[in-house]
């Protein structure tokens, strides 16, 4: 598949911190990644790795007086971080759609489905009240909900889990956005339903020329689904590259651990070695590679990205080699 080189979303040196009386919490530290036009970026990491914060903070989805954001996030050439609330709100829903993890909780329990779907296009002035119903029907149809005319007047609790997530996707694509941010969209779903939702996202990408950011803790799903992968840990990126590059030559020990964890869980065995520290520990200002054992040399930043030799576009967080010299990371 041939794509233009201009990424839809280009995040550079993003740092997010929350300062309160208890101290400063560095949730995201010096993170950079691109979302290719028409492509799918998978952001992989365990909970607390900063994967959600790094996306949501740039979109103005986190409202906190203690939050401090630095760096840049260019969405189609415009820096999201330099916009005020209203400018970002005008993009949300209109050009950037969101799908969240908990489909039941994410839908308003006391509003009819049709009204929830048509709300964003109505609000952004793309349709008028008379068109709202037809608009909602065609959207429901396009995400594969049967009998859309009848289901329109139902409430969320009358839908099944998979259908609710389809409704969420219909809401997210209701204004024909360029970018879809899916935050663990299949985590709460059964495996079979997960498959169908992923297929739906795939087909929407192709039909509507969407770019997708797919946030997940499941490396296998990301590998199957995404074109590009970013692996995050402790608020920093450990490794990023195309899915093929990361799969065939995982350059960072954390990535390798994720792979082996996935595989060995299948065999019923647990890996003895755990990551060096809990993510929260690093948030409270410990410096250096988050994945290194405690007591390593202090560094100013958590990332020092280095391109893997012979693989353009495959980057690995280089801080790690200072503490794991014998591991052969440094190729």
């Amino acid at each position: 598949m041939e794509r233009t080189n201009d990424p839809v979303l280009s995040v550079r040196n993003l740092s997010v911190s929350f300062a309160d009386a208890a101290g400063t919490l560095h949730a995201v530290d010096d993170v950079s990644f691109d979302v290719p036009e028409g492509g799918i970026l998978g952001v992989v990491g365990e909970s607390g790795s900063g994967k959600t914060v790094s996306l949501m903070s740039t979109m103005g989805m986190i409202e906190s007086s203690t939050m401090h954001v630095s760096g840049s996030a260019l969405f189609r050439g415009r820096d999201l971080l330099k916009m005020d609330f209203a400018e970002r709100a005008a993009l949300r829903g209109r050009e950037i759609g969101f799908v969240f993890q908990n489909p039941l909780g994410s839908l308003n329990p006391v509003m009819r489905i049709g009204a929830q779907i048509a709300e964003a296009p109505l609000f952004h002035g793309l349709i008028n009240r008379r068109q709202a119903r037809d608009c909602a029907i065609s959207l429901l149809e396009s995400v594969g909900v049967a009998n859309p005319e009848r289901r329109l007047d139902d409430y969320p609790h009358q839908f099944s889990g998979g259908e609710r997530q389809r409704v969420m996707i219909a809401i997210a694509i209701s204004c024909g956005p360029r970018l879809l941010i899916c935050d663990e969209p299949t985590t709460a779903l059964d495996v079979t339903v997960e498959r169908k939702i992923l297929e739906l996202l795939f087909s929407l990408r192709d039909r509507r020329n969407l770019s997708i950011v797919f946030i997940t803790h499941d490396l296998t799903v990301a590998m199957n689904f995404a074109d590009e992968i970013s692996v995050m840990y402790g608020g920093a990126i450990m490794e990023r590259g195309s899915a093929l590059q990361v799969l065939s030559n995982p350059a960072h020990p954390y990535t390798r651990e994720l792979f082996s964890a996935n595989m060995e869980v299948g065999k019923g065995k647990r890996r003895g070695e755990e990551p060096a520290g809990t993510p929260a520990e690093f948030f409270r200002g410990r410096e250096g590679c988050p994945f290194e054992p405690a007591g390593g040399p202090p560094f100013v930043s958590r990332s020092r990205m280095r391109e893997v030799e012979g693989e353009p576009g495959h980057w690995v967080n280089d801080l790690h080699r200072y503490t794991l010299e014998t591991d052969g990371v440094v190729a």
Binding site: A89, G93, R94, F100, L107, N108, F123, H124
Partner: peptide, 17 residues
């Protein structure tokens, strides 16, 4: 604090709305 408020925010609605 509920998730559907986040959804509403993700639609680009203003705070009051």
């Amino acid at each position: 604090d509920q998730d559907f408020v986040r959804t509403a925010l993700s639609k680009g609605l203003g705070r009051l709305r």
